[in-house]
Amino acid sequence: MKATLRRARPADVDQIRELVREATRGRLDPSPDEVFERMAERGMLLALDPERRPVGLVSWRVENLVARILDFLVHPVALRPTVGRQLIEAVEEEARRLECEACVIYVSPEMSSAALAFYIGLGYTRWPEESLSEPWREAAHEFDAFGRVALIKQIRSERVTRPI
């Protein structure tokens, strides 16, 4: 299925909350204020099915030429190969437009092998610490305290060595 992607809007808060609750089987139940705050502090895209219901979302923030993918959710999970790919590629396109060098996605070390294969298939991997520039290293360690692992994809062939 090819989804329709669009920026999340304040009017989407309740639908986003429902998507999160369904996808996590109720483990996460964000308040309207929490969803609105996330929308306000980062870019957020929704993926809509043909009936205009949300089936995925992604949020990101850009800093120091690195796009950080902070939220990524596709439900049902069977849509990950299509809808998930659309969402990640949309963030990468926005990151390229903003002259970013890399995209980083933060994942649980206990993620499924299918999820890891999905990210690897999109070009994300763990980079050796010594090969990371300072901004990449900072981004890679940003969520260490939360038990997250950074997978990185270089999206700009040449690294920026002076201001653009």
Rank of each mutant, 00 (worst) to 15 (best):
A11Q: 08
D12K: 02
D12C: 01
V13A: 11
D14I: 10
Q15P: 03
Q15E: 15
R17W: 00
E18F: 00
L19A: 06
V20P: 10
V20L: 09
R21K: 15
R21Y: 05
R21C: 11
E22Q: 11
A23M: 05
A23F: 07
T24N: 08
T24C: 02
G26N: 04
G26H: 12
G26F: 09
R27D: 08
L28A: 08
L28T: 11
D29A: 06
D29M: 14
D29N: 15
P30D: 07
P30C: 02
S31C: 08
S31M: 06
S31N: 04
S31V: 03
S31R: 04
P32H: 00
D33C: 04
D33H: 01
D33E: 12
D33F: 15
E34S: 05
E34V: 05
V35L: 02
V35N: 00
F36T: 02
F36G: 03
F36K: 09
F36M: 07
E37C: 03
E37T: 03
E37N: 11
M39E: 00
M39I: 01
M39N: 05
M39A: 08
A40R: 15
A40G: 07
E41P: 00
E41Y: 12
E41M: 06
E41K: 13
R42S: 12
R42W: 08
R42K: 10
G43E: 05
M44Q: 01
L46K: 04
A47R: 08
L48V: 09
D49N: 15
D49T: 04
D49S: 07
E51S: 13
E51F: 10
R52Q: 15
R52K: 14
R53E: 12
R53G: 05
P54V: 15
P54N: 12
P54L: 13
P54Q: 13
V55I: 14
V55K: 07
G56I: 08
V58R: 02
S59M: 14
S59T: 14
S59Q: 03
W60Q: 09
R61P: 02
R61S: 09
V62Y: 01
V62A: 05
V62K: 11
V62L: 10
V62Q: 03
E63Q: 08
E63S: 14
N64R: 08
N64G: 02
N64H: 09
N64Y: 05
N64C: 03
V66K: 03
V66L: 02
